[in-house]
Structure formats: C-alpha cells, structure tokens
Amino acid sequence: MHPIMEQSFAVIDSEIGTHNFNPCEYAIIRRIIHSTADFEFLDLVKFSPEAIASGIDALRRRLPIVTDVNMVKQGIVSLVAQTFDNQIISAVDRVKSPLPGKTRTETGLIECYQQYPEAIYAIGNAPTALLALCKQLEFSSISPALVIGAPVGFISVLESKTALANTPVNQIRIEGRKGGSPVAAAIVNALIVLAM
C-alpha cells in the first residue's frame, strides 16, 4: 500500500473511532470514505447478509464485472488486471442505439444481464440501469453474484435504490441521493483487496 494511502487510512480510522462494523464491512466503508472524503457514508452503506462473501467468491472465480458506465470501469481496471483479471464490461459501451424509450446504459445493462446473469454488477451513475436490472430480476431465476447499487443524483435515484432493496439479491447499496462512479469503484476495489 502506498504511504499516502496508509496515512489517509490512519486519519480516517482516528476520525471514525469505535464503530460496529465487522472488519470486511469496515474495509469497504473506509475505502469509500478515502475516495470521497465524506464521512456521511458511515450511515449510508447497507450490506445484505451474504453480499461480501458472494462478491469475494465471484472475484476469485473470475466472473465478469459489469459496470454501468466507463468511469466505473476505469476506476477498477488497474487493480483487476493486477489480481484476478476478471473480464470488465461497460454496459453503455455495448450499445450504439438504445431500445425505444430506454437509455443506452439501460439497454446495455439489459443485454449484459441476458449474457452474464451471474456477474458482479457495479452501478455508480445510472439509476435507469439499476431499475432495468431490478426489473430483469423479477423474471429470472438466476441472480447476480453481487449488485453494487450506488447511482447518484436526483431523478429516479431513490426509486432505483428502493427497487434494489426490495429484491433478494446479494447487494451493497448506498442509501439516499449520494453515490457515484468513485463510490462504486471503491467498493469493487475494496472487495478485490479482501479477496486477495
């Protein structure tokens, strides 16, 4: 680990103090705070019971990682290449023209789920993509290994996270309007370090 990262983690640890997270949960939350300098994430990150174990297992089995946008992909590509070398697919990059009434990201996500239903899904930007994934889960018996639900913004963001919360899929979810590509990437990178 780079000395600056070590120093940053030490500052984060000292400011957080005592907490009730288990070591794996804390490793993920600390990485998010390191990426955002926002301690509000302490109260916003929600883990389903098997989410971390399933994510780690999926990484070790080299299942694909599907991101909604290229920025999430770019945030994880270096560490993935150095470790498990999972295939990384950016949903938005798969689509030249979207399905009628849908965004490119939404269309790409649907295509990715049809091809890689058991993948890890890391959504850090597009709530429409998260909503599309949740809709696909209603009609399928195959669940992704893990869904990281961290879209950011004001339109459909809360609805997409509520939809995810109401599915039985393994998930790491950011409550409220906050999130973003750096948050989704931080979660994947933290899982990779745990998997190592």
Rank of each mutant, 00 (worst) to 15 (best):
K102M: 14
L133T: 02
Q82I: 03
V169C: 13
R173S: 15
N22W: 09
P182K: 13
R60F: 01
I174S: 12
E138K: 15
I174A: 14
S160C: 02
Y116I: 01
D93E: 15
G108F: 11
S35C: 01
L131D: 04
P49S: 08
Q171C: 10
Q171D: 00
R94N: 03
V169G: 01
P64A: 07
D38E: 12
T103E: 02
V69T: 14
Y113F: 15
V169I: 06
I155W: 09
A119S: 15
G149Y: 11
F154S: 05
C24M: 13
S156E: 13
P49I: 02
N189Q: 06
I12T: 09
S141L: 13
H19R: 01
A150H: 11
I29G: 03
L146H: 07
F139M: 08
A165Y: 00
E106S: 09
V11K: 09
R30C: 12
H19I: 02
E111L: 04
A145Y: 11
P64M: 06
P182Q: 09
V193A: 07
I52H: 03
E159R: 11
A81E: 14
P151A: 06
H19T: 08
I120N: 02
I65V: 15
P168H: 09
T103L: 05
F39I: 12
Y26V: 02
V66T: 02
T18C: 12
P144W: 10
H2A: 01
R177F: 13
L146S: 02
I33V: 11
S8Q: 13
T103H: 06
A150F: 11
T167S: 15
K161I: 08
H34T: 03
N166V: 05
S97G: 00
M196G: 10
F47L: 05
Q136D: 08
K161S: 01
A37D: 03
S156D: 15
S181V: 06
P49Y: 00
I32V: 15
F47Q: 04
P117W: 02
L42Q: 12
L99T: 04
L146M: 01
C24G: 09
C134K: 12
V66G: 00
M196H: 14
Y116F: 15
V69H: 07
E15L: 15
R104Y: 00
I187L: 11
T67M: 03
P3C: 00
I174L: 10
A58T: 08
K135G: 11
I89D: 04
T83G: 04
T162W: 04
A190V: 06
I33C: 12
P23V: 09
V152Y: 14
I33K: 07
L133I: 04
R30D: 07
A122E: 05
K96Q: 14
M71T: 15
I88Q: 05
L191P: 07
I32A: 11
S14K: 06
G153C: 10
T67E: 07
D93Q: 15
D57I: 00
K178V: 10
E111M: 04
Q87Y: 01
M5K: 14
E111V: 07
F154K: 08
I52Q: 00
S160Y: 01
D57G: 00
V183E: 14
D85N: 09
F21S: 03
H34E: 07
I28E: 05
L164D: 01
A10C: 00
F139P: 00
V11D: 08
A165V: 02
V193W: 08
S14W: 08
T83I: 01
Q7F: 12
A132K: 02
V183K: 10
A145K: 03
L109Y: 06
I192E: 09
I56M: 09
I16Y: 06
